[in-house]
Design a protein around this nucleic acid. Structure first.
Lengths: 202, 202
DNA sequence: GGACTAGACTAACGCCCGTTAGTTAAGTGT
DNA sequence: ACACTTAACTAACGGGCGTTAGTCTAGTCC
């Protein structure tokens, strides 16, 4: 008799993750209670402790996953390019992936962009390190474009942050039933990013 | 005998505002307690109620002030221009004022950009209306530039949000003792904004 | 100098928080 | 059949929350 699909990870734990993610993103970590999370899952608050050690552990689990997903999303996009793709193409791929993530996975994006401060000190440090590495991967692309003369940027650091932050903002206004589809939004932001790195110094 | 300067507004109330602003911006509204605020001022929590009716009223007082200051800051910058200034000049003035505010008055900026959700429903509505009006004032400038042919923008709404959000992000990384002075940061962002509205459609 | 006011204080209320202990019922493996 | 594990439950603890009531004291106005 065929073995039933074994649960590799608890289905309840995943429901808890999903409920906590939505509420942390929507109301904030401090304003969300363990009783709130449990109620969305249909259990009692005490039962959450069969799956997670503490409220902060849930936040850290979600934060780490979100940041890993963000990295994986970028890696996938860059891996699809030719190995020797020119910086302009890499920048376009990066920005498109970045914006796509922030539109498609709003809750994860909002969590990463507004709830890091509620992590424990140790976890906060790790999260900031991951965020810095992500930022660095964009700066590296821009640096390469400047070095090759393809880009004209008066301050690489400011351009890096500006491109990231305008894309990050998408998670706050994008709605799936809005005027623009996700792919249109991505295309718009790619244009803006290219404009930023190719402008004439005045 | 000369009248001593009468206190038009309570000095203690202003100390409370200052302490609450810093802590709301740094730790978030929910994570800040009335006892925390009182302790920074050097009084007991109950004494706060001699000056404000509730915790939420403090937040609303600070939020409304911050948004009024942001509007006034923009109005001052635009009023200094010639009445018939061209959209490019108006955009530069707007972005410079926007970035200057977000660098110089970080706490107020962070409050407006991350704590609106903790307001009561009625106050939240008013805050969103103010934010929309601010956004509209930038869109109007970009619209004028597009109408005159001075700007080339494939989507005015996206360009508006992108310019605002990249400037807003300054409040999260700017430090007075950092590599760039405020005026240098403003100048950089003006360049980026002009690049965004003048890029060729591809 | 006596009435009044402003603004601090102490004490406490009722509620909700994250979390723990102990119990129970439903599978699962041999 | 029986031991074992998983994961739900009820009950409660200790503590902190926003807020209120009532008191005291120092200064102000006629």
């Amino acid at each position: 008799m065929p073995q039933a699909v074994s649960k590799v990870r608890s289905a309840t734990a995943d429901e808890i993750r999903q409920a906590a993610l939505e509420q942390f993103a929507q109301s904030g970590y401090e304003a969300t209670t363990m009783r709130d999370i449990a109620a969305s899952v249909g259990i009692k608050a005490a039962s959450l402790y069969n799956h997670f050690d503490s409220k902060e552990e849930i936040l850290w689990d979600l934060t780490r996953s979100a940041m890993r997903d963000l990295d994986a999303n970028r890696d996938d996009a860059l891996a699809r390019l030719a190995p020797a793709a020119v910086p302009r193409v890499k920048l376009a791929a990066f920005v498109s992936a970045h914006v796509d993530f922030h539109a498609e996975r709003r809750h994860q994006a909002v969590l990463v962009n507004s709830q890091l401060g509620s992590l424990s000190q140790a976890h906060h440090r790790k999260a900031v390190a991951l965020r810095d590495a992500y930022e660095n991967s964009l700066r590296t692309i821009i640096d390469a474009g400047v070095a090759s003369g393809e880009f004209t940027v008066s301050d690489v650091q400011v351009a890096t942050l500006a491109i990231l932050q305008m894309g990050t903002g998408v998670s706050f206004w994008f709605r799936p039933d809005g005027r623009l589809r996700i792919d249109q939004v991505c295309a718009e932001y790619v244009k803006l990013a290219l404009a930023i790195v190719r402008h004439e110094i005045q």
